[in-house]
């Protein structure tokens, strides 16, 4: 029995992995070298420069920059709105994914298309898009421009696809028999969702939420036309960075950018862990 137990361990994970992942051949080694140089020049070196520029100013400089009254307000606003939007994304994204996977009706493919639009649309256009419905001339008579709801709305628009797109494939792959087993064991629909479905999709929801949060924290383009960038009211962190760049205060810009970068790195690390967890569970 013990031997059988070992045999059965994690069959789902091994099936997907290539069976003989090779080491590096001279050709692929060269390819890796070129790729790494390019990746370093494009991504790693510039991001390191952000950290280095911050470090040059020392802890004091960093602290002064991020606790500057206006900057601190912007960071607070960004974090609050990004969290708020992520919370809505978690609920609505899961709901949308559920409907797309479990329901079927004419026009469903159109919904699929709609979900990706915010991802593909230029961010400045996204701002214009929202302005046309929620701006001063919008047909709804709701005007959010230059007010906090504008920030919320813009972030909600650009982060819409993340939770949907991470949850959807996991939901589609769920074993319907597990839900049937739960039903035959006496569980009602809500219990099945809460105790069988939700635990299975939670890592995917978390990964989507992390991406949405990161995107929300760093959003810039969609806010430009919509929020008015009013200090202490609708100005977000990335706008502060841009203002610092424009006033040629690169160390201050780098300090705020470092805060955003830390969030990005934390998100990437979290997603990596979550993916590993999903694979392990098989």
């Amino acid at each position: 029995m013990t031997a059988a137990a070992l045999d059965g361990a994690g069959p789902a994970t091994s099936a997907r992995r290539p069976r003989h992942p090779g080491g590096l051949t001279p050709a692929s080694g060269l390819g890796l070298g070129v790729a790494l140089v390019w990746f370093s020049l494009l991504v790693l070196l510039p991001l390191a420069a952000v950290a280095a520029t911050t470090a040059e100013g020392g802890w004091g400089g960093f602290w002064r920059a991020v606790t500057n009254e206006q900057t601190a307000a912007a960071i607070r606003l960004t974090v609050t709105q990004a969290l708020l939007v992520t919370a809505v994304d978690v609920v609505m994204g899961t709901l949308v994914a559920w409907v797309l996977v479990r329901d079927s009706f004419p026009g469903k493919r159109l919904l699929e298309l709609l979900i990706d639009i915010p991802f593909a649309l230029p961010t400045i256009v996204a701002g214009l898009v929202l302005l046309s419905l929620y701006g001063p001339d919008g047909p709804l008579g709701v005007d959010v421009t230059n007010r906090r709801p504008a920030v919320f709305l813009a972030l909600l628009f650009v982060t819409t696809p993340f939770v949907v797109r991470t949850v959807q494939p996991v939901l589609a792959e769920l074993d319907p028999e597990a839900e049937e087993a739960a039903a035959s064991l006496g569980a009602g629909r809500l219990t099945i969702f809460r105790r069988i479905v939700l635990p299975a999709i939670t890592p995917a929801i978390a990964a989507g939420a992390a991406l949405a949060f990161a995107r929300g924290m760093g959003e810039y383009g969609s806010l430009v036309l919509l929020s008015g960038n009013l200090p202490f009211r609708t100005e977000v962190a990335s706008v502060r960075i841009l203002a610092s760049i424009e006033s040629d205060d690169l160390p201050a810009a780098a300090s705020v950018a470092t805060v955003l970068l830390v969030v990005s790195l934390a998100v990437i690390a979290a997603i990596d862990l979550l993916q590993r967890r999903m694979v392990r569970r098989g």
């Binding site: 074993d175 028999e177 597990a178 049937e180 087993a181 739960a182 039903a183 035959s184 064991l185 006496g186 569980a187 009602g188 069988i196 635990p199 299975a200 569970r281 098989g282």
Partner: peptide
Amino acid sequence: PQERNVGFVFQHYAAFKH
């Protein structure tokens, strides 16, 4: 199904993986 009080065993176990 939940009102029938039957035990059901599936070919592919339908284990609750988590």
